[in-house]
Amino acid sequence: MDQFHLFPPQASTSAQEVDHLYFTLILISLFFITVVFLPILYFCIKYRRGSAADRSNPLNGSNLIEVGWTTLPTLMGLALFGWGAVDYFRIERKPANALQVQVVGKQWMWKVQHAEGKQEINELHIPVDRTIALTLTSQDVIHSFFVPAFRVKQDVVPGKYTSEWFKPTRPGEYHIFCSQYCGTQHAKMIGRVVVMQPEAYARWLQTGEQTESIVRSGERLFYDRGCSGCHSPNSKFHAPLLQGLYRKPVPLADGTMVTADDQYLRDSILQPAKQISAGYDNIMPSFSGHLTEEEIMQLIAYVKSIGREESPDQGKP
């Protein structure tokens, strides 16, 4: 019982937004509690059995009153919905220029890899005042990456990429919880976010054994696992070239279009038959089971890096 708090620390930009709505909701609740509990209390005292209160001409209903107390809460609800929805939309949209961090959840730990290649487990070191974007996936069951101090939470679903972003505003250490029940040691799937001053963060990146960047690892895999054998200009197989592909629309064999986002790239590696690019044959083998989630993320980071030279955050070793 060392630190007693009624509210969690407010350590990100969205924390403020969420708290504003939260406090407004508390005020609205207090309002409704007042308009319900005070009359109940008053009536209970005044009209208790045997009291001398005037009970003549009681009202047994009034459509005007009913319409009133139906409409008012409805309007209030719609306003609250709008407020919550606007904030939610901001929380759910991926930021374009952010520090990318890859997170893989598994029973029962968080495996984190920074763009620079540095890996950590159950810890996330990040600089203050920078937008951080997490790409999350799970190796087994559904987890949920929850940082109360940032007021953000996102389920981490096997088989797909979800994303979560935040912009920390205060250096310090905060809890990471897994909030989606994931099995026996669910309660132990916890960690900490360490928000650091930019200089401290830069120093931290240099500590420990030096690793290659995520893009570099991906590039190595691209050649080692034979991807380059087909996906290169001078290959004897007819396979799509990946340069400049990321975030571009791709026409598919069945006439539809998809955007080449992370999920598309992932599916193309693991379930190549699902979406065949127009003009190509269904010849690519599935790499399902042959790559770890981390390796897939590295490969995608590489494909992204050759797809978006203009982005300053990507591909910097």
Binding site: R90, E92, R93, K94, P95, A96, D261, Q263
Partner: peptide
């Protein structure tokens, strides 16, 4: 799903 635009 996937209709959400990037946040610039």
């Amino acid at each position: 799903r996937g209709w959400v635009p990037l946040n610039h």
